[in-house]
Design a protein around this nucleic acid. Structure first.
Length: 324
RNA sequence: CGCGGGGUAGAGCAGUUGGCAGCUCGUCGGGCUCAUAACCCGAAGGUCGGUAGUUCGAGUCUAUCCCCCGCAA
């Protein structure tokens, strides 16, 4: 089988590696353009491109695909049996989808039809879901609306971050893609229509990263923190300084009062976002709706991530100060 | 030439107009306590990123090099 692979980030690289190691004939790799990245804005190749370079697979990096007749012609000339798309980053037009005889298949990081769109993994964590998974499907013109082929569930841990889940799913994605190709090759791949309710997982907007102490419960804040780790980091302001939280715990008000010997009524009356306890021995505790947030890992302005005790040694946070 | 912050004890930081190198924690030794991430006493630990310069005198001012980090993508 002649396979054309389209993908860009590390998540896609894992899938490419899996089918490469499984012995499939990869006739080319399509990946996004090198982008200026990091300090100094140097051009950096995508992980998929790196892998292709190392293994001498031909690389294509079209600026755009829609209305790019040169590229479409090139793909026709390549004559792929299947195109595998994993987190490529561009929407594919119908004329491209119709080229491979056996179809275009996609690896998606959710249990479709839940979380169609660009950020399924992030949203699963942000919403505090207990499980998610990987779905492979035949692509059509819609946004992740094609017929499903294989599906595998994965549990999400209470403290699992998007980054951890991302890695886990990328590996499963590679395995499932390999299985899917096997089934396509021997003609046993099913075509399962997506039925029932669907939901969308749009690309994350920067504005969601700010913690809203007035309206979010402690549990929601915790989910926000782990959902945005390590992509953006949930942040808040303290004395006009931006502070990011990377790891927090969520403690019930009752348990907290019992532990610290405080009066529940007094605690309930405090404003949300107020620092209840802050010292380098016990750590940092913040009053929230329906709970206390205990900060474990934090990052100050222009600083790196560090555990809360180290942070408080050099950066004093006063009790009763308020996160905005 | 994208924008910005920084390099001082093992860790996190302070250090004013140039004038004895400090704080908190940790480590080591001792004490106290039924008990502790408790408390008390004591000690060790530094080429202040490198080099050159200004100066009676540089962590601090100037030049230059190296390294680290954040934003942004």
């Amino acid at each position: 089988m002649r396979i054309l692979f389209m993908g860009t980030p590390d998540f896609a690289e894992v899938s490419l590696r899996a089918i490469y190691n499984a012995g499939y004939d990869i006739i080319g790799v399509v990946t996004n353009q090198d982008k200026p990245k990091g300090r100094g804005m140097k051009l950096v190749a995508s992980p998929v491109k790196e892998f292709a370079t190392q293994n001498s697979i031909p690389i294509y990096q079209p600026l755009k695909i829609r209305n790019n007749t040169d590229f479409i012609e090139e793909v026709k000339r390549l004559n792929p049996d299947v195109i595998c798309v994993v987190a490529y980053g561009k929407i594919l037009p119908k004329e491209l989808l119709e080229i491979p005889k056996l179809g275009c298949i996609n690896v998606h990081g959710s249990l479709l039809p839940k979380y169609r769109g660009a950020a399924p993994i992030q949203w699963a964590v942000l919403n505090g879901d207990k499980k998610t998974g990987i779905t492979t499907m035949y692509m059509d013109e819609g946004m992740d609306t094609g017929d499903m082929i294989l599906k595998q569930e994965v549990e999400i841990g209470d403290d699992e971050t998007t980054g951890e889940l991302w890695n886990k799913l990328s590996i499963i994605g590679g395995e499932l893609l390999t299985k899917t190709l096997e089934k396509i090759e021997d003609g046993t791949a099913p075509r399962i229509k997506q039925t029932g309710e669907f939901s969308l997982a749009p690309m994350l907007d920067k504005s969601i990263a700010k913690i809203d102490w007035k309206n979010m419960t402690a549990k929601e804040i915790k989910n926000l923190v782990r959902g945005l780790n390590p992509i953006m980091g949930a942040y808040s302001y303290l004395n006009d300084k931006k502070i990011k939280f990377w790891k927090v715990q969520n403690i019930k008000l009752e348990d907290f009062c019992y532990d610290k010997n405080l009066k529940l009524e007094e605690l309930k009356r405090m404003e949300n976002g107020i620092v209840v306890i802050s010292n380098e021995k016990e750590g940092l505790y913040i009053k929230c709706i329906e709970g206390i947030i205990k900060v474990l890992e934090i990052q100050g302005e222009n600083s790196k991530r560090m555990n809360i005790c180290d942070f408080l040694r050099g950066n004093k946070i006063n009790t009763k100060s308020k996160f905005e």
